[in-house]
Design a protein around this nucleic acid. Structure first.
Length: 405
DNA sequence: AGGTATTCACATGAAACTATTCTCTGAGTTAGG
DNA sequence: TAACTCAGAGAATAGTTTCATGTGAATACCTGT
């Protein structure tokens, strides 16, 4: 990273392509959000009652990643807070992303994070959960106020815990005497509401708003607007924007990804001292994003998982040498894994665990594993490495390095 | 031939365990009055 | 006697292990023609 920054500084001083790069970063909130007028209006009208000092309905927003859910809600929040300040009303609207590392995935931590945002403090561990609950209620109920809590990526939280947590939170109004709370849930999983506790469903989903994915044309508008602010004039071709939005539209209309793509393409072009961004840089950026993601993933795996991955890697190469794409299975991986552990003098995890690790890799997209039945010869996973072949050598290096082979 | 039952080699789930991290509490210790 | 220290009790978490149960289809085994 240090190298990258150095390059940016150098060319930023001389002839940067960027006018203001922050406008392309995902945490930037633009003044206008194209093609989301309707949704923003809905959110605003649902939340408006808080300005009259009334509790607003619970709200649930859903749509795929990068469709502007978070952006829209935060925009409405800022507007409401601005207005409330003018009118001298006290409203608290807290935003919490359930997926952040810090928050992780337990009710304890979510509550702890909320308490912290509300100005209290709570140790990171060591307290009974009940205690944390009462502290939370105490803080909220300390004075007459309206509290709106926005849970971003709420599906992540529920996946790990249970919907009981949400139920308790939703019911909390009954325990509050002075204050009142409402909740806004944001989810990437469109089917989230369908498979949770119906009690939670009915109260969290008092109002629902769907954020549809952007199509290529809409993405193009968004990109154009941001480009005006982010890049200097004449740096970006129309063709580049078109291609960029087409690429992103193909991948589920994710605006965030489109912006990342453009930014990285810009950085790449800048580093090579180009005056304008061409289509090739987009392709390179696309590759670079993928590459960085995989390498980072591999690098940050715990040792045991790395050994499993290394086993898979070895098996892939072994089988490729022999015949064309002979597949292998969980059992093969586990055997090789055991040998490796013995060689490295590490303790051997159970097959049960290794099976889970393999399933995790599948989730992460490092491998492709299908459960198949080989009839009389049992049921197992058919495993295929899905790391692009140009990265294989690099990945192998990383693994060898960190395992000390 | 056609139908049914077995059986393999794991997958998948749930519960229980372990090591580690952290707070809180109260007993024992210390130092100052 | 008040302040301080420090070990032990409790609690939460991540990563595992243990135990239990599930599963899809190739194969073995019938059954009647």
């Amino acid at each position: 990273m240090a190298v990258e920054l150095g390059g940016i500084f150098d060319s930023a001083i001389k002839n940067s392509l960027f006018k203001n790069k922050s406008h392309l970063q995902s945490n930037y909130s633009p003044q206008s959000i194209p093609h989301r007028e309707k949704q923003i209006e809905s959110v605003a009208s649902i939340m408006a009652p808080v300005l009259r000092g009334e509790r607003c309905s619970n709200l649930f927003l859903y749509g795929k990643t990068g469709t502007g859910k978070t952006l829209s809600v935060l925009y409405v929040r800022d507007e409401i807070l601005k207005r409330a300040k003018e009118m001298g009303i006290e409203i608290r609207i807290e935003y919490l992303n359930c997926k952040l590392k810090k928050v992780s995935d337990t009710e304890y931590r979510i509550l702890a994070a909320l308490i912290e945002q509300l100005g209290g403090s709570i140790p990171s561990t060591g307290l009974p959960t009940q205690h944390v609950y009462s502290k939370f209620i105490e803080i909220i109920d300390s004075k007459k106020q309206l509290v709106v809590i926005i849970f971003d990526e709420i599906d992540q939280a529920v996946k790990k815990m249970s919907s009981d947590f949400l139920y308790t939170l939703l019911r909390m109004n009954a325990e509050l005497s002075k204050a009142q709370i409402s909740m806004i849930g944001i989810s990437n999983d469109v089917t989230f509401l369908d498979n949770i506790d119906p009690r939670v469903r009915s109260s969290l989903g008092e109002e629902e708003i769907l954020f549809p994915t952007y199509n290529a044309v809409q993405l193009q508008d968004i990109l154009k607007e941001r480009c005006l602010e982010a890049f200097k004039e004449g740096v970006v071709d129309d063709g580049v924007i078109a291609k960029c939005s087409a690429l992103a539209a193909r991948e589920h209309g994710d605006a965030r990804r489109a912006l990342d793509l453009l930014r990285i393409a810009g950085e790449l072009a800048e580093r090579e001292g180009e005056k304008r961004i061409t289509v090739e840089y987009l392709d390179n950026a696309n590759k670079k994003i993928e590459r960085d993601k995989i390498l980072d993933l591999v690098e940050t795996q715990p040792t045991q998982c790395q050994i499993v991955l290394y086993s898979i890697l070895s098996l892939t190469q072994e089988r490729k040498d022999e015949k064309e794409n002979k597949l292998f299975f969980t059992g093969d991986v586990f055997n090789l894994y055991q040998e490796l552990c013995a060689k490295l003098k590490l303790e051997i995890l159970t097959q049960r665990r290794v099976s889970d690790i393999i399933a995790d890799f599948d989730m992460l997209g490092l491998i492709n594993a299908n459960v198949i039945s080989k009839g009389r010869h049992g049921r197992t996973r058919e495993i295929k490495l899905s790391i692009p072949s140009n990265l294989l050598i690099k990945v192998e290096e990383i693994l060898k390095e960190s395992l000390g082979i």
